[in-house]
Simulated scan of single mutants.
Amino acid sequence: MMKKYFILLCVIVSLQAEEVYATFTVEAQKSADLAFSSGGIVDRVLVDVGTMVQKGEPLAILQNDDLKAMLQIAQTTLKYAKKEYQRQVQVKNIIDKAKFDQYAYKYESAKAQLHYKQALLDKTILKSPFEGVIFSKKVEAGDVVSGAMIRTLFEIQSQHQRKLILEYDQKYWKSVKVGDRFSYTLDGEDKRYEGVITKIYPTVESDERKIKAEVLTKDIKVGLFGTGTIITSKRDAE
Rank of each mutant, 00 (worst) to 15 (best):
I231C: 08
V215E: 01
E19M: 13
V139F: 01
G40H: 09
L67T: 03
F36R: 09
I61L: 11
K55A: 12
I73Y: 13
S37T: 11
E214I: 00
V133M: 05
F154I: 06
I156L: 02
K212F: 05
L8Y: 14
A112F: 06
D169Y: 12
F135I: 03
D169Q: 13
D122H: 06
A81F: 05
Q113M: 11
N93E: 12
F100P: 05
A74H: 05
K4Y: 15
T77C: 12
S37I: 10
L59G: 02
S14Q: 10
K4A: 12
L62H: 03
K97W: 12
Y193K: 01
Q29A: 09
R162T: 03
L224Y: 07
Y193M: 00
G40Y: 06
G147I: 02
F6C: 10
L186N: 00
D143Y: 01
P129C: 01
M2V: 15
L216M: 11
L126P: 01
W173T: 15
R44T: 11
D96R: 06
E108L: 15
S146D: 09
I165L: 03
I230A: 01
A60I: 04
R44F: 10
A213E: 02
H115C: 15
S175G: 15
K117D: 05
L164W: 00
K163D: 01
A81E: 04
S38P: 02
Q159K: 07
V53F: 04
V133E: 05
V178R: 06
E57P: 06
